[in-house]
Amino acid sequence: MLRYIGFEEARLLAISSFAYGGLLFLLSSGFSLIFGLMRIPNLMHGSFFMLGAYFGVSMLEKGLTTDALKAIPKIGGAFNFLPSFTILPPNFFLIAIISGLLVAGIGALVERYLLRRLNGQELPQVLLTLGLSFVIADLCLMIWTGDPWQPATPAELRGVVQFGTLFFPLYRVAIIGIAVVIAVALWLMVDWTRLGAMIRAGVDDPQIARVCGIKVSQLFTLVFALGAGLAAFGGVVGAPYLSVYPGLDADMLPLALIVVILGGTGSLLGALVGSFLIGLLYNFGQAMVPDLSYVILFLPMLLVLVLRPQGLFGRSIP
């Protein structure tokens, strides 16, 4: 049952694990903010990831030109007055950021007009976000069909990078770098800026925060949009590696849940450590004990829930 692996394979698995962990962090950091800070059990977080990935592959395929806009079914005609030109160069990361912004906008609408009405009611929030995830999954199936899409790795990030005598695939190293940069940026924002303090004040005591002049409602929309956008950005960055296919949302959501439960809700450090931990367990588990890979994935979560319910780095929830 246990398959032994050599050093070379272990090394590749390790780099894949950390790259996978980096993607999981992009996914689960937003989930941690939404679930940990705002207490919204957002079961459509995987949908944001998938939707971002689909937006990204479409833009990579068609390019960011006015002709691509005109070719959009139904609404494309509205752009017919534009001459043919390239709006933006089809840069991979630019497209990832645009996808993130688009999905952040969708997330803001969902929070403001739907979730806001269910303030503090967890069960209706679960049902709403679960329902929306089904709707998005079907819409994606309709628009992008059931075939998987796998964009090429961005040209400048193909090949390998050498550390000492060891070679690593450059793109996977880049994913790790992106995840760490975003982790640091989020940590600085939440823990060290006035904006972050205002968000935490709004979570602590929303009523008094409003009396102090903090626009809690707008801040919460912003946080939700940020979480959705990060997931979508992760979806595009992960697309050359994971590909995009129907069911990607349902594959990613449980991973976000495990990461946040393991790391601790509301803790960004927890989300980072949890992501890398799950990345390692997932990759090594599949390689070494393929029969039990899901047991290996979920067992730590079970242990944490039983022994340390607030998670490895979580503050205990009052």
Binding site: R194, A197, R200, A201, V203, D204, D205, I208, A209, R315
Partner: peptide, 8 residues
């Protein structure tokens, strides 16, 4: 705000 520092 209990989870904030005095300054925050």
């Amino acid at each position: 705000f209990k989870s904030l520092t005095v300054r925050e």
